[in-house]
Design a binder for these strands. Structure first.
Lengths: 195, 195
DNA sequence: CCTCTTGTGTACTCATCGGTACATAATATG
DNA sequence: CATATTATGTACCGATGAGTACACAAGAGG
């Protein structure tokens, strides 16, 4: 049984709300008053529950990976490399054009406007982007073994290409591109796919 | 003859230095102490010469368009749509991997971590990105008239695609991708080009 | 030489940033 | 009921943000 006064808010819901703020504003752009207001709690409660703004951000990143960016993991389960690529692009478009979501990619948006303080945040985000790319590369390596990618394809190049297009799509969404326009981008990008 | 005490610094050089800081840190991430230090002047001189941080940023954007992003205008002069696309991708790679430059694209990086204050900056950057895309689209429309793009190609889609890849490349560069890796991305992207 | 104009440098303003001290409220355990 | 423990809310902290007032310096025109 938990001792002491019980927490009066739902910590998962609060984290979700914080994620939205970080997603919209980036790490440094999200201020504590904004965060606490969106989370419906006050400052000391935030610090008691999450430790600090930076720890809160890292937990929000984890939640992002499980939730809005979950399509990335799901895509890995597609049967062929081409299906993986299609699913990655479609998933990106779906997320960045969903009206309930901020436009753009948290891993891209979050990194900027970093004072020296947030240099560690910048590295963290770059590391997470690279980890995603590495997972895709590994999936494409398997695809070559499976025979659904030509043996002379370079899985690292293909992974980098797909990730670049995904990130480009995210930026375009932030510039105001709509779903249909982004689907055309994805379709064009897939014309380059080896077969 | 100019009246009063003469300015003791080169205003163009100072603007160049400011551009570098904005490029590296974004609009809000660039602080006045950083800016004045890089520019070699003190705060009142900055305000006297440029008006405000926001006006300084806008002037830095103009300089960016003429300087580091000048390849965009040059690319429009290429004889065919494909050559334009190649030049755009190559130019992007050149700029974002030049060791003398910050990594990434000012128009993408600058927008982030915007408090409400800087919402106008955000819009300005989105507008400039869209203006660049529109210029590319117009060039591709001409290419169709010239016959060096198939008549059933959609210039808007192609422009959006190329811009997306350019922006993706810029993000990848910020993640640490090197020139050779980005050239592979560009080569892959061009496999999708209509012929 | 005096004055007018413009640039420079120091030292300030006020707002806001992330983070916290402290008093109080709410629960579990004894 | 008493006490230990944890959460909440107010009100603060020092640091730093953008922007500026003001005294002084350097030139031009008279």
């Amino acid at each position: 049984m938990p001792r002491g006064r019980p927490r009066e808010f739902d910590i998962d819901q609060a984290l979700d709300r914080a994620l939205r703020v970080f997603w919209r504003k980036g790490y440094e752009g999200a201020t504590l008053p904004e965060l606490t207001r969106a989370m419906g709690i006050n400052r000391p409660s935030l610090y008691a529950a999450f430790g600090s703004k930076e720890e809160l951000f890292r937990q929000a990143l984890d939640r992002y990976a499980e939730g809005p960016a979950g399509y990335l993991g799901e895509a890995m389960g597609e049967p062929t490399a081409r299906a993986v690529a299609e699913r990655l692009l479609d998933g990106t478009i779906e997320v960045v054009t969903d009206r309930r979501n901020p436009r753009g990619c948290l891993l891209v948006q979050g990194a900027l406007a970093c004072g020296e303080t947030a240099e560690s945040i910048r590295r963290e985000l770059a590391a997470r982007r690279l980890a995603g790319e590495a997972a895709i590369r590994k999936r494409f390596e398997r695809a070559i073994a499976d025979g659904d990618l030509p043996g002379d394809s370079d899985p690292a190049d293909l992974a980098r290409y797909i990730v670049a297009v995904m990130q480009g799509i995210a930026v375009q969404a932030a510039s105001g591109a709509n779903r249909a326009e982004l689907r055309q981008v994805a379709a064009l990008a897939l014309r380059a796919w080896p077969n």
